[in-house]
Design a protein around this nucleic acid. Sequence first.
DNA 1: AAGTGGTCTAGACCACGGT
DNA 2: CCGTGGTCTAGACCACTTG
Lengths: 259, 259
Amino acid sequence: MTHGYSHQVTTPPPAEPRFTLDRTSPVPLYYQLAQQLEAAIEHGVLSPGSLLGNEIDLAGRLGLSRPTVRQAIQSLVDKGLLVRRRGVGTQVVHSQVRRPLELSSLYDDLEASGQNPATRVLHNRVRPATPEVAAALRMPEGSEVVVLERLRLTHGEPVAFLCNFLPAGLLDLDSAKLEETGLYRMLRAAGITLHSARQSIGARSATAEEAERLGEAEGAALLTMERTAYDNTGRPVEFGAHVYRASRYAFEFQLLVRS
Amino acid sequence: MTHGYSHQVTTPPPAEPRFTLDRTSPVPLYYQLAQQLEAAIEHGVLSPGSLLGNEIDLAGRLGLSRPTVRQAIQSLVDKGLLVRRRGVGTQVVHSQVRRPLELSSLYDDLEASGQNPATRVLHNRVRPATPEVAAALRMPEGSEVVVLERLRLTHGEPVAFLCNFLPAGLLDLDSAKLEETGLYRMLRAAGITLHSARQSIGARSATAEEAERLGEAEGAALLTMERTAYDNTGRPVEFGAHVYRASRYAFEFQLLVRS
DNA sequence: AAGTGGTCTAGACCACGGT
DNA sequence: CCGTGGTCTAGACCACTTG
C-alpha cells in the first residue's frame, strides 16, 4: 500500500454538529449542551463509535469552561449514551437499544407502546390496614388506607389486576380520574415526588378467581409484582400487589453496570 | 413555652463524624470522603433525616475545595443515600432499604444472601448459532457460539436452569471453573467489562422436561428471564435464557427515580 | 512523547426556601 | 432577609493509552 496524503486509517474527523447555547436562558448551559449532544446521537449526526473530540478544545469552541463541558458529558455517560476512556477519548456507545429502567408506570408503558390502555376501577374505599399493608407503609396496624383495585386492559382485553394501598388522606383518588390516567400521574399531579421504590417480581399459578378476572385458564402462569414506593423524605407513599397475564405482558428494561 | 437558651426546635446539630483523608493515597479524595460518608450512614452515625451541614463549611473543615466535596456528595445522591434541597441542605434519606438494582449475577446474589449456591454444568459445546441467537449476538447466522447449559442449586435443591450463548473464542469457558463461580465473574476475570444489558422478565408454565429438571410439577409457574449483555463498545457479549422456580426465587431490587 | 480524561483548587454569582 | 445548594470559571497537575 502506498502512503498517499490525507489517508484515514481510523476514525474520520468528528463530524462536529453545531451547538447553540443561550446564556440568557434559565436552562443551565451544561444541560443545553447535554440535550443537544443527545439529540445529535439520537439522530445519527454523531454515529455510534465516533469520538467526541477532546474536552478542552470542545470547551474552547463552545466558549465554555472545561468543568461545564464535563458536566454535560458526564450526564450522558450516566445515561449510557457515551463512554469515556482515558488516553483515548469520549465515544458514542454502539448499542442500538437505549431504554433505561424506570420506576415504570404500567399505564405509561402501555401508552408509550401504542397499546391504547384502559382502566376499570373495581374497588376504591378506605379500610383499616391489614398487618402486611401496615408494615409496608410503616403505619400502625389498623390505620386507614385507601384500597384500590383496578383492572388494566389493552384493546379491550385484560392485561393485569392491580391492587394498591395508600395512606388515607394523602391525595384525592377520584375513580373517574383513575380511569383516565395512571396512579403515578395522579401522585405527581398532587405534588408528591417519588424518590425510590422496592420491587419484587415473581410468578405463580392463577387461582380460580384470578383466572376469571383476567380471562385465563385456572392454573395459568401469572407474573406478579409487589412494590413499595417512597417519596423524597423516605416515607412510604404506596404499596401495590399486581398480577399480570404472562401470556400478554413481560417486564422489559435496560440496565447499566455501576462502574 | 419560655424561650430559654440553646433550645433545639428542629434537628440536633449534625453529629459530625470524623473523616480522615490521605492525600498520598491513589484513591481520589472525593471517593475517600464518599466512602466514609456512606459508612457513617450505614452504621447510623449519620441518622436518617439528619442534615449534613453546608458544603462550604464542610469543605473548609476537611481542607478540601467545595467542588471536591460536592463530587463526593453527588455520588451518594446518585446512589439514593442522600437528598439535596436548595435552601434547606443535604439530608440522609429515611428509607431503610438500600439495595440498588444491578446487572445481577444469580450466583453472586445467592452467595450474598448466604444461600450457598452450586452449579452443575449440563452442556458446554461449540455449535452454530440459531437465527434467534445470531440475531441477539449480532453475528451471521451459523457462526460458532458456545452453548452453555447449567443447573443452579442452593442447599442441593434446583433453583434455576440457565442457558447461555457466547461468541466462540471470546474466552475460555472451563466447565470446572464454571462450577466454582459465576459466568459474570469469569467474564470480568477475562478482562471483559460489561456496560449494559437488555432484560426481559416473564412467566410461563413448566413443560414436562423443565419440570423434570427443576423438580417441579408439570404446568407449575416458572419465572423466565432473557438477557443480552453488551461490553464497553456496545458489542453483544452474552445472550441468556433462564428459567427459575417461582416457588423458590423472585427478582428483588430497588429503583431510583430519574430526576 | 503526545494526547486524553481524571482529579483538584479557589474563587464567583445566581436561584430557591424558609424566616 | 439570609443560608442553602446550583451553576460556572480558569486555571493546575496527574494517570493512563497510544504511537
